[in-house]
Amino acid sequence: MDDVRAMHIANGIINGPVSAIFIVVAVAGLAVCVRRARVDLDDRLAPMAGLVAAFIFAVQMLNFQVLPGVSGHLLGGTLAVILVGPWVGALCVATVLLVQALVFADGGLTAIGLNITNMALIGTAAAYLLVALLLRVLPRTIASLGATALIASVIGVVVASLGFVAEYALGGTTQLSLGGIAATMAGVHTLIGVGEGLIAATTVVTVAKVRPDLVYALRAFRKQPIGAQA
């Protein structure tokens, strides 16, 4: 039962050189995020971002069953993009991954660049593109916000899982069929994405009802927020 608690890429699955390259990629990506995040981060968004990171940590512990013998958990990119924006959101997910790797021994230290690239950078970027697009074209209703969270989650999670497949193609330490791994990862993560989407939609719709002014996506990607400013 012990090893089922691990949920991110462990050491040894991807070889050393490729893991090292992705540490550089992750550091560079996060540096860009810090630069851009400073524009968004004010006295109100900073504590909100801390809360979003803590919330993602909590929900990542809640593995839900997607098939017999297979579970999944939230990655958090879509939730973070909608609540605190793409740049701060990527930093929230990265913070969670760093705490998990350094304190909870989940996600290898050698693999930290791979995990950050997939979940904090790739998954969040995909979610951002979809959220920005969908909120511009969908009607301005709370249902649209929920639907946006659901759709962006499914795509964001699948794209993040394909990030792993790409890394495996570059530096996988076993001789396995890449097509088989891609099919398993994408298939299972479509189901996980639906679960993530339901959690993300419930969360952002709840926040939008209570404090619409705290939902970054409603401020940034729409001309007017759904509700009155608090």
């Binding site: 039962m1 090893d3 089922v4 691990a6 949920m7 991110h8 890429i9 462990a10 699955i13 809360l51 803590a54 919330f55 940590f57 909590a58 929900v59 512990m61 809640l62 593995n63 839900f64 069953q65 997607v66 013998g69 297979v70 579970s71 999944g72 958990h73 899982s161 792993f164 088989g180 791994i181 398993t184 990862m185 299972v188 993560h189 189901l191 996980i192």
Partner: peptide, 29 residues
């Protein structure tokens, strides 16, 4: 918000599935 997060991580986490997650499942295939 913090209270909800603490409740989820502190209490609801006991109901989490013990099956391998998607990545772990693929790694064991």
């Amino acid at each position: 918000g913090l209270f909800v997060a603490l409740l989820l991580a502190g209490v609801v986490s006991r109901f989490a599935s013990g099956s391998p997650d998607g990545l772990d499942y693929a790694a064991r295939e």
